[in-house]
Design a protein around this nucleic acid. Sequence first.
RNA 1: GGGUCGGUGGCGGAAUGGCAGACGCAGCGGACUUAAAAUCCGCCGGGGUGACACCCGUGUGGGUUCGAAUCCCACCCGACCUACCA
Length: 844
Amino acid sequence: MSDRYKHSEIESKWQAAWEEQGLYDTAEDPSRPKWYALTMLPYTSGDLHTGHWYAMTPSDAAARYRRMSGYNVFFPIGFDAFGLPAENAAIQNNVHPQEWTYNNVERMQGQLRRMGAMWAWDREAISCDPEYYKWSQWFFLKLHEMGLAYREYAPVDWCPKCNTTLAHEQVWGEDRHCERCDTPVIKKDLNQWKFRITKYSEELLADLEKIDWPEPVKVMQTNWIGRSDGAQVTFFTEDGDPIEIFTTRPDTLWGATFMVLAPEHPLVDIITTPEQRSAVAECVEEAGRLDEIARTAEDKEKTGVFTGGYAINPVNGERIPIWVADYVLMGYGTGAIMAVPGHDERDFEFAKKHGLQILLVVQPPADSEAGHVRSADDLEAAWPGEGVMINSGPIDGTPAGKEEGESVKAAIAWLEENGKGTGAVNYRLRDWLISRQRMWGTPIPMIHCARCGTVPVKYADLPVRLPDDAQFKPTGESPLNYHEGFRYVTCPQCKGPAERETDTMDTFMCSSWYQYAYVDPYHKAGEPLAADDLPWDSGRGSYWLPVDQYTGGIEHATMHLLYTRFFTKALRDMNVVAFDEPMLRLFNQGIILGPDGERMSKSRGNVVNPDEYVDKYGADTVRGYLMFIGPWEHGGPWDPSAIEGVSRFLYRVWSVVLDEPHSNGAGSPADADVRGLERKLHQTIAKVSEDYGSFRFNTAIAALMEFNNYLIRVKDSFTGPDGGETEDGVWRESVRNLLLMMAPVFPHVSEELWQRLAEGGDAASVHLQAWPQADPEKAKEEEITVVVQVNGRVRDKLSVAPNTAEEELEAMALASNNVQRWMDGKQVRKVVVVADKLVNIVIG
RNA sequence: GGGUCGGUGGCGGAAUGGCAGACGCAGCGGACUUAAAAUCCGCCGGGGUGACACCCGUGUGGGUUCGAAUCCCACCCGACCUACCA
């Protein structure tokens, strides 16, 4: 017996050896095809949890497979190191967030090393390092110059627990709660910095076609961007003030019987008549207050008030009342709508409630449920569907619809001809609010001067550093506000007294460009920057970029994954990159659940600590188990007993490779045994290669287990009379290839066995070996089973050579005793023969 | 309300038009052991049989096909996302 598999010894041994050899250091090599594999960077929370293992170790296995397949693979790692938890810890424990963060980084680096992943540690980047965030600030200045960063006084979402504003994407759910702490947000009017992501709305939408991303992410981004095609139409009040509206149904303009303004709309004040003033003021106040209360699903009653003012419908000159209601949102479109109660559900509900006129302009077809409706009074609900335009002047008789020759197009053409409006596209996407009223983030490099206004910090003065001596008090206010040295500065333009911007950037800013930072982290460290610098070495950048394969969770679909696409387009327009999309392929893994099938959480007490299992079984087993659970994109529950199966597999591999055989064979193995093993080997290579290439680790591992079981079964046949192995190469080749195929998932045990197997004991690492190639000839079966069916039910099986002629199969099937028995003298109506598969005899 | 994905043994799953349940977990029986653990061998969807044969079976109901877990239609259930978007 050889010694047993001792994972703790070999794993730490090889991790140290690989590091010493620089096995995973990165070098650009134009002679080889590159592959940039990236897994979403971890936040410096303090501990790597099972979710990190589930996301990262399969990413590593895929990257290792690419590397063995001949690619020069870049698989970097770093830390998302700014954010609120560090600051909260600072307040609670009176430590600087930097200290808290770097303690966590150190612990997590150790945990990441235990994974045995091929991280390119030589390119590590940490986003709170001043040499990192000086480039975040450099980007900010560039975006500001391009008009893509701007400051605006506007109502914004504020989390009262985090004491900061949030971006639209970071407010979740119907109760509009904070993405981080679940607290319902409130509205505040504040001066805030934003990025003009909406400039790229159309491109962000259209370019989804260019990238190989999962359909659900594309759908979510598409919905989030929310393109609507319609028309912009100008109404006028009786006093001649214009009211712009956007509508997707300009064909129903003739059915507009009233207008509704959002409570925040600037015209509300102007058009409200004295009699209505108090009611309108109450409604506006109510709407403002409602924003501060968590809205529930039931709270959908359409409330609104008449302003007393009237507008003229530009298409037919009708005088229609103007209302104020909170179902019209200031943040979408123009904050004003024309209401067509006959054909819009919300308008219908509102009109019914307030006794407003309902007009029918689309006659529902006669065969529809609403087809008998001849007048609007009969309507039980709005009719948003098809039909023919009526009561609509120039477009009467046109079929309702958006296609060529139908009502929407016709209406837009008429509007444009008559100067009443234009075809228009509207997007739901809003600009990205990046200001955070917190200290532990990238300072926004701007200075407010009473004389010069808002002035950018000079490039050469970057980075704007966070102070080391900030005081953390539980006031809810950013320490930057009361740090005099940080706050009070001289104006870069007039040299007069000025105040530094104390907002910091959303941490999604750091992660919007981290894939570029990895290429050449902390570029120009310690050197002053200039406007025409490049943030990384251009040779390295053009070699590695863009990312070939990105892996991560779908929860970032409308945040990080949208922001980084925007950022890349902006970088392209500042001539920093030459491509349109940052990540060419994306794979979303599922979520690893607790043993109870629920999401892991401390409150449920179902959290699985990966370190515990690594101690007990080793990193290789934990890696393999996570990949064996099921399809990676599905996720699934952690089963503490099922991990035993993977552990046993590794012990069996150990034994099949190293142990003496149980009995000695007769000499050299029989030809059939040799061919059988060779066939199984090449079938396994084909299967495993295909599965690794498409992230199907569960079936790849199953194939490896099956192959190992085969090796165990036949081992004694390949044993020479003296107890040692025969000279025959197939056994040796099989074992070597088993280790090569295991290397991506089980890097340590594969390396250990590879080295022990090597003659002379000083072989190059298993991870530097070439991926084995399956030979289809050798993988071919000599004999296959063809199923014989009678009326679709299996009644017999034939053992034949592959490619046996169809006529021959048919003859054999008809001659079968079993078949004869089932045919029972009945007529053969038809015989279906599928070569190498089956014969189906249809009788009756 | 809208969208997306899914429903297969006791459990995780495999099979995406051709032998349902690969691989693994749990369970049962056996070997080894003073005993247990570990390990090894065998069984393992349900009914039926001494054993076969045979019958039933992939959420439910229909359909297409020589043949359906797989394709189509309707419905039921679950997960996730989204939601007054004009």
